[in-house]
Design a protein around this nucleic acid. Structure first.
Lengths: 227, 227
DNA sequence: AGAACGCTTCGGCGTCGGCCGAAATATCCG
DNA sequence: CGGATATTTCGGCCGACGCCGAAGCGTTCT
């Protein structure tokens, strides 16, 4: 088997709409049950089970048994980055159909990307942090400045470097086509926003709802105002 | 069409061994004819033509007519990065079959990756440059230091920042599992190595042969010695 | 224990898409 | 203008794979 055969195998797993839906649903970093994934992929439970077996065997998702539930999650950050890179290409592709979306507006506004904030909200926050010198984001890397540590610390965000995870990096937002904040810092920021009740998850979608508190909070903390 | 459908479409294109082979063959940044790609993919010319039409329509490859030849190349760096990220996952996947390779040894030793050097050679050079402080490579970005500019300049390498291209970044090597040098700097370095005759391309593969001059040159310039 | 629930396996159906050879176009060369 | 080469189109074959319902297995709840 040559290297390209491995590539084809991985890509073909993601090349099936049902499996692509599942991976996309897992991109927010949560662990989901087979049934939830079946629903997300619009297929029956048996079909989903078969797909999950394939994804698991290939090492793209890992499962964790808890009683009669089986929780599935993306197996490694590298996998998430791959999915993200494919989405970036897909959204940039000259396919006219991509313009017509079901529920795309909510997703474009605010959503999770693996475990950080994306969409207009994510990009706006990244812009705000960059503008005031709290982070420096290049196309290919980033860093959290001392002033940024202070600013985020004031919000109760402690981003400690972790082994095996990039600390601070840009992630190309597939809807906005501009970077938002990823890595440990992005994850900690998103996590804190959930804690503060600024954003809440919604059923069956990665779209996020910005709460009243969130509107106030994002405006005061970052000068960001979104619907 | 939701975002995931776009992902599935792109991924399914790469999920077919023939097309994956073609994309992999194009990963060295060269432009190849349909016939060459047919050979690389081990399919007949008609089959290759069909695949190329799909890849082109999806915007993954761009074609350039020159007389009776049609040169195909990867349409954008973003595409190359996507392919690279899939390869990285594929090579990390727990698939026992990946261990048995046809001609893998040569590829592992030295090859091109899009338009820069990869494999043991690429990683060793990146290590050497990093060790002497010529470049700084983080997991998520990199920079060329003044001393690096001088070192590379002495070899006749002028890496000028270019719009729309990352200047200096690490690229996860899918065989070594460690970063090699990419971006404008990596490209200029590879280009100069070809000019100096230190490495030569080989037919029908992305593997590179290190010449006698190359052995001397790499050893003197970077302290790197490879077969 | 019995029922409910989550998940997987099995069997069969249907379709999608890759593959090739032959023939049709297009382009270059002499 | 022929002949050679590169590439595409066409037609038909066939295997691979996704999909579902029904049934089987294991866990939890009452």
């Amino acid at each position: 088997m040559s290297g390209t055969a491995g590539m084809a195998m991985i890509a073909s797993l993601l090349g099936e709409p049902a499996r692509a839906n599942m991976m996309a649903a897992l991109m927010d970093g949560r662990a989901l049950t087979a049934k939830e994934l079946a629903y997300a992929a619009h297929v029956s439970a048996p079909t989903a089970s078969g797909h999950l077996a394939q994804l698991t065997e290939a090492g793209l998702v890992s499962v964790e048994r808890q009683g009669r539930h089986r929780y599935h999650r993306i197996a490694a950050p590298l996998i998430g980055q791959m999915v993200e890179s494919i989405m970036a290409v897909a959204s940039a592709a000259p396919d006219p159909r991509r313009l017509a979306w079901r529920g795309g507006e909510a997703l474009r506004n605010a959503r999770t990307c693996y475990d950080h904030l994306a969409g207009r909200l994510g990009v706006a926050i990244a812009d705000a942090l960059a503008a005031r010198g709290d982070v420096r984001l290049a196309e290919d890397g980033g860093e959290l400045t001392p002033s940024g540590q202070q600013s985020l610390g004031a919000l109760g965000i402690v981003a400690a470097p972790r082994r095996g995870r990039v600390f601070c990096r840009p992630c190309l937002d597939w809807s906005e086509r501009r970077p938002h904040l990823a890595g440990t810092v992005g994850s900690a920021l998103a996590c804190r926003c959930f804690e503060l009740g600024w954003v809440t998850r919604q059923r069956d979608t990665r779209a996020l709802a910005i709460t009243e508190a969130g509107r106030t909070g994002f405006s005061e903390a970052f000068g960001v105002s979104l619907p």
